[in-house]
Design a protein around this nucleic acid. Sequence first.
DNA 1: CACTTAGTTTAGAATTATTATAAAGTAGTT
DNA 2: AACTACTTTATAATAATTCTAAACTAAGTG
Lengths: 137, 137
Amino acid sequence: MNNKNKIFIDKLRSSGLRPTNQRVDISRFLFNRKKTFHFTVEQLKNSMNLKRSKKISTATFYNTVHALKSAGYLKEFSLENNTSYYDTNITSHHHFFDNGKVIDIKSDKITFNKLPEAPKGKKIKNVEVVIRLENNN
Amino acid sequence: MNNKNKIFIDKLRSSGLRPTNQRVDISRFLFNRKKTFHFTVEQLKNSMNLKRSKKISTATFYNTVHALKSAGYLKEFSLENNTSYYDTNITSHHHFFDNGKVIDIKSDKITFNKLPEAPKGKKIKNVEVVIRLENNN
DNA sequence: CACTTAGTTTAGAATTATTATAAAGTAGTT
DNA sequence: AACTACTTTATAATAATTCTAAACTAAGTG
Ligand SMILES: [Mn+2]
Ligand SMILES: [Mn+2]
Ligand SMILES: [Zn+2]
Ligand SMILES: [Zn+2]
């Protein structure tokens, strides 16, 4: 159990967080999966607490997600509502937005012919593409 | 005066809004400019009301901006805080994000070599690029 | 192991952006 | 001028998030 959770505990430790039960559970829930997970804190809280007898508090979800983000284990992004979304895929990549549903696009699936230069004094930190989808017909 | 405001009044009328004094002032403030204006409702309210003796209410700013957006005279977008931004440039275009500052990139300044296909049953509605900037060195 | 302490959890209050409500005011029509 | 539907506004309500401070616990110390 301790060994099985080592990777999740390490993410917490290197985020400056003691591996409490709550945090290890959150870390495992977020990172113990094959596919990218895109979520809001509210969604995370609901899906985790639904299954638990002892609920984790809202503040702990926010604290843990923020610390993991600051440590670089989560990326934040925005849709057009006023809620923060988080992404377990921390590599540089792009997205399809399909009516609130978010789908990853691997970085190498999009290449550019022409890109503008950064204004003077500035340089490009990253380039992110959003492809918005709609239904056929 | 009535003639000078015709274009702003027309935008209101075609958004289903009567051209009241408040709305004409907002419409003129938004659209009587050369460059694109990117703003939050709060910013719009503050910059307009600062100069006025008779303030326009928050609700009127929200109502008017929403109606103009629904009519297609404004586009909405998100930065990574939880606030809605609006854009007077309703053409398809891209953005530099530079620490909260937003700069337009004309559509033809970015072209693609490779773009993924839409998932089956879906088609691409639009493609938007965000280039995040940082300072040199 | 106690003991200590800094870090953590939590309920609830506070804050911010936004939306809803409903009473008073106004535009457009007759 | 009178009527009515639409509008404005102050204020309340809601939603997402952050803050607070008291109770709790991990981890080091002797
Ligand atoms: Mn909000
Ligand atoms: Mn918010
Ligand atoms: Zn992603
Ligand atoms: Zn723009």
